[in-house]
C-alpha cells in the first residue's frame, strides 16, 4: 500500500557507539534493546541502559534518524513487570517505536502508550492478512516485520491485502524456522529465543580438537565437524550437519547468511516500507560498513538505477561467508 514512498533503512545497534556509527553511515532508523532478557539479543556486554537509550535517541534525532526499541521476547509468567517497565522506559526515552511480539507487551503498549508507534516483531511470525489484521485491530500495530519464509511474490500479494506497513530483512543472520516458534535451542541447551532471548547460546558451545577434525558441539550434541585447515564456524543448531535417511549434510540449512541486496527493487515493488539489517550482536566496524553499502544501494534503487550497479555496490559485502537470498526468490517452493 505504500509503494512509491522512499524505503526506510533500519539498522542494528548493540551499543551506543554502534548506534552513532549506524546513524553516521546513513541509517534512517536504528533498532536496539535494553540490557536484559526483554530483547532477543540478550548477550553479555551488549545493549543499552535506560540512560544510554535516552542519549541514543537524542543523538539519532539530532541527526535526523529514528530509534526503534526492541522488547521482543515473551514476558515471564508471574514476573511480567520487567517487560512492562521496559516498554514504559522506551516511551520515556522518546523512542520512535516499540517492536514487540508478545501479546502481553502489545496489549500493555496499546492500553498505556497509544501514541507511540507499535511495530510487530518478526518473532510474532505474522504471515497472513488475517493474522496481521488481528494485530492491527487489537493493538493498532503500524508496521509488521515479515517472517523470513515468504517469497517476494507472496509479500506482494500480502501487501495488497493489508493496510499496514511491512518491513523485510535484507542482510545478516537467517532463521530457516518460523521465528518465535522454534524450540530447537531449548531442546538441546535449555535456553531459547522465546524464553531467554538467545539461540544456541555461547555457554553451551564446545569445540574438540581431534586428529582428523574439529568437532563443534552444543550441550554435548555434535552440530558440525571441520576438516583440518577449514575454519570452524559457530554451531547454530539449524545450520549444522546431520544424518537422515542415509544422507549426511546440512539437512535444514547450509551455514549461510542472508543477502537480499539484489532484491531491493523487487521488495520495493512488492510494497515493502522498510529494509532491515540483522546483527545487533555485531561490532561497530561491521555495522558501519554494511550500513554504508546498503545506504548507497537503497539510494541507487530509489533513483531507478541499474540493478547491476546496485549489485556492484554490495559486492564488497559478500567476501567471507556464503550467502543466500533466502526464501525471497521462491527457491524454497
Amino acid at each position: 500500500m505504500t509503494a512509491g514512498r522512499r524505503m526506510e533503512l533500519v539498522c542494528p545497534a548493540g551499543t551506543p557507539a554502534t548506534l552513532r556509527a549506524a546513524v553516521a553511515a546513513g541509517a534512517d532508523a536504528v533498532y536496539c534493546g535494553f540490557s536484559d532478557d526483554t530483547n532477543a539479543r540478550n548477550f553479555p556486554g551488549l545493549n543499552f541502559s535506560p540512560q544510554e537509550m535516552a542519549e541514543g535517541v537524542r543523538f539519532a534525532h539530532d541527526h535526523g534518524s529514528k530509534v526503534l526499541v526492541a522488547i521482543n521476547t515473551f514476558a515471564r509468567a508471574g514476573d511480567t513487570d520487567p517487560w512492562r517497565k521496559a516498554a514504559d522506559t522506551a516511551v520515556a526515552c522518546g523512542a520512535d517505536a516499540v517492536i514487540a511480539a508478545d501479546i502481553a507487551v502489545l496489549d500493555h503498549m496499546a492500553q498505556n502508550h497509544p501514541k507511540t508507534r507499535l511495530h510487530l516483531s518478526v518473532q510474532a511470525a505474522a504471515a497472513t492478512p488475517e493474522a496481521i489484521g488481528f494485530y492491527t485491530e487489537a493493538f493498532a500495530v503500524r508496521r509488521v516485520v515479515l517472517p523470513r519464509v515468504l517469497s517476494v511474490q507472496e509479500i506482494a500479494a500480502l501487501n495488497r491485502a493489508i493496510a499496514v506497513e511491512t518491513e523485510a530483512f535484507v542482510f545478516g543472520g537467517l532463521c530457516v524456522m518460523m521465528e518465535g516458534r522454534c524450540h530447537l535451542s531449548s531442546y538441546a541447551t535449555g535456553r531459547s529465543p522465546n524464553l531467554n532471548g538467545v539461540c544456541s547460546p555461547p555457554e553451551a558451545v564446545s569445540y574438540e580438537e581431534g586428529g582428523d577434525a574439529t568437532t563443534a558441539r552444543l550441550s554435548g550434541f555434535t552440530i558440525d565437524r571441520y576438516e583440518p585447515g577449514m575454519p570452524a564456524g559457530y554451531p547454530t543448531l539449524c545450520k549444522g550437519q546431520f544424518k537422515a535417511g542415509g544422507k549426511t549434510g546440512y539437512l535444514f540449512e547450509d551455514p549461510v547468511s542472508l543477502n537480499a541486496g539484489t532484491m531491493i527493487v523487487a521488495l520495493k515493488e512488492a510494497g515493502i516500507t522498510a529494509l532491515k539489517i540483522e546483527g545487533r550482536q555485531r561490532g561497530k566496524g561491521y555495522v558501519s560498513e554494511v550500513v554504508r553499502a546498503f545506504r548507497r544501494a537503497v539510494d541507487a534503487a530509489e533513483q531507478g538505477r541499474d540493478p547491476v550497479e546496485i549489485e556492484g555496490i554490495l559486492a564488497s559485502l559478500s567476501e567471507g561467508g556464503r550467502q543466500t537470498t533466502g526464501a525471497y526468490r521462491k527457491t524454497w517452493r
Binding site: V176, M177, H183, C238, L251, A327, W332, R333
Partner: peptide, 21 residues
C-alpha cells in the same frame, strides 16, 4: 515426539532433492 519448529521449507522434499510444490 515434541513439536519443536516449523519452517517455510519442507525438509523431506529437501532431503529427497525435490521442490516443496
Amino acid at each position: 515426539r515434541l513439536p519443536l519448529a516449523l519452517s517455510g521449507r519442507c525438509y523431506h522434499a529437501r532431503l529427497h532433492g525435490l521442490h516443496k510444490d
